[in-house]
Structure formats: C-alpha cells, structure tokens
C-alpha cells in the first residue's frame, strides 16, 4: 500500500503517534495527581488566602 519505502512511512507515523500519546497521557496523569492533592489539602481544611477572603466576604 505504501510502496517500497513503507518501513520509513510507518516508522514516521508510528513515532508520531507514540510521542503524542505519551505527551497526552503524561498531561492527563499530571492533572489527576494535581486534583487529588488539591482535594486532600481541602479535606484537611487548608484554604487559599483568596478563597478564605471571598468566603469571609460572603459571611
């Protein structure tokens, strides 16, 4: 289907897919890790100054 240089074409597309997938998974895993850490801090009652201030304003 890709002629005599099929190996080069498939290798180029293969490495592109591999790197893009690794990049995507890394960002998704990092996002999950950050959300988990944030939830743990909030569960311990830690609040950012700006969040604490806005809650104080509403009270």
């Amino acid at each position: 289907m890709f002629g005599t240089h099929a190996g080069f074409i498939l290798a180029a597309y293969g490495i592109a897919i591999l790197v893009v997938v690794v990049l995507f998974v890394w960002i998704v895993v990092d996002g999950r890790s950050q959300r988990r850490q944030l939830a743990e801090l909030e569960a311990r009652g830690v609040r950012r100054r700006s969040a604490a201030t806005s809650e104080g304003d509403r009270a």
Binding site: G31, Q34, R35, L38, L41, V46, R47, R49
Partner: peptide, 13 residues
C-alpha cells in the same frame, strides 16, 4: 494553575 494553588496552600499550611 492547580500545581501553583497546591504550592500556595502547602505554604499556608
């Protein structure tokens, strides 16, 4: 953004 929030919250803690 979340990483920087976590850093700030850890410093407050």
């Amino acid at each position: 953004i979340l990483r920087r929030r976590i850093r700030a919250m850890r410093m407050i803690e």
